[in-house]
């Protein structure tokens, strides 16, 4: 399978793979905003301004406004993306949101990665009744309708960032269990395991020190895709009212707040955060895919 795919997808050398570079650049930008977004924001993302529902400046005015913004320091900052119905500056909120969205996605992914890899190693290396039961439970967990399960966990557990992280981690763990287990089962029959055993290593030692490092790649590659989907899911939860609480700067919540205005023609409160999600998740998907092709190519 991997061979024919490698041919079909025409792997180019690392530097020439433009998809890899686009994905990498988007992810880097989002990481940068998660670190410095709130500091760079011209307005406080959670404090209202007196200007309510003001549209973004017209395209023709942009050069003049940018020039004024650079030259004179005394004027109030421009609302580049306009303001929403409560007067919050949309630009400040859009660039502050990665700190919330990305933190949720990264921590949830990290937790499920840790859990999934440990359980996957256990279930792949030691095949017995106990690990069989764990796998069956994991199968049942995976058959839960994802979005509805996440809503149940967050709405009934309390709408907090911590609960969103736990819900996402619980939903993504079975994926990592399956990936790691499959890889471990392929690795443990390799020659180096036999060699490690021959020189007198214990089974637990072989599993952790030799098999585990060789079985991480599929799960790590999946991470990029999972982080992207975690951002989508977080935004979706906020959108139906089972996510973070207002006025937290979070993309899905912003789209949701703007949803009522869009039928009245006020497009900017929803459109800008939507573009941000769209590009971000695409970036993670592209990066994940590029890594996957490279791994498949060996």
């Amino acid at each position: 399978m991997s061979e024919s795919l490698a041919v079909a997808d025409h792997i180019e050398p690392a530097g020439a793979d433009w998809l890899f570079r686009i994905g990498g650049a988007i992810v880097a930008l989002v990481l940068f905003l998660a670190a410095f977004g709130p500091t760079l924001a011209p307005y406080n993302p959670t404090l209202t301004t007196p200007e309510v529902s003001s549209p973004p400046p017209a395209l023709a005015d942009l050069p003049r406004l940018i020039l004024t913004a650079i030259v004179s320091k005394n004027t109030a900052p421009v609302h580049w993306f306009g303001t929403d119905a409560s007067g919050l500056d949309i630009f400040s909120r859009v660039i502050s949101a990665p700190r919330i969205d990305l933190t949720i996605a990264l921590v949830a992914n990290g937790l499920s990665l840790l859990l999934g890899i440990s359980i996957g190693l256990l279930c792949g290396y030691f095949r017995n009744l106990g690990t069989e039961i764990i796998m069956r439970v994991s199968d049942v967990l995976q058959s839960f309708p994802v979005f509805i399960s996440a809503m149940i966990l967050v709405a009934l557990g309390g709408r907090s960032i911590g609960n969103i992280v736990i819900a996402l981690a619980a939903l993504y763990t079975p994926i990592y269990i399956r990936l790691t287990r499959a890889e471990v089962m392929g690795q443990k029959v390799r020659g180096y395991v036999e060699a490690a055993r021959a020189i007198g290593n214990g089974e637990a030692m072989i599993a952790i020190k030799h098999v585990l490092p060789n079985s991480l790649t599929p799960a790590l590659i999946q991470s990029s895709v999972t982080v992207g989907f975690a951002i989508l899911l977080t935004a979706g939860l906020s959108f139906v009212g089972a996510g973070v609480q207002p006025p937290t700067p979070e993309w899905g919540l912003m789209i949701s707040t703007g949803a009522n205005q869009i039928v009245l023609g006020e497009w900017w409160p929803s459109v800008f955060p939507g573009i941000a999600i769209s590009i971000t998740v695409f970036g993670f998907a592209v990066l994940g895919n590029a890594l996957e092709r490279r791994y498949a190519a060996g």
């Binding site: 789209i255 009245l264 023609g265």
Partner: peptide
């Protein structure tokens, strides 16, 4: 690239966008 893009989009946002363009 289209497949990757369409498969990673916030559908509720596109739905709103469609409403804005095709209804409003």
């Amino acid at each position: 690239v289209y497949g990757l893009f369409a498969g990673s989009q916030p559908e509720f946002w596109w739905a709103l966008l469609f409403v804005f363009v095709f209804y409003f």
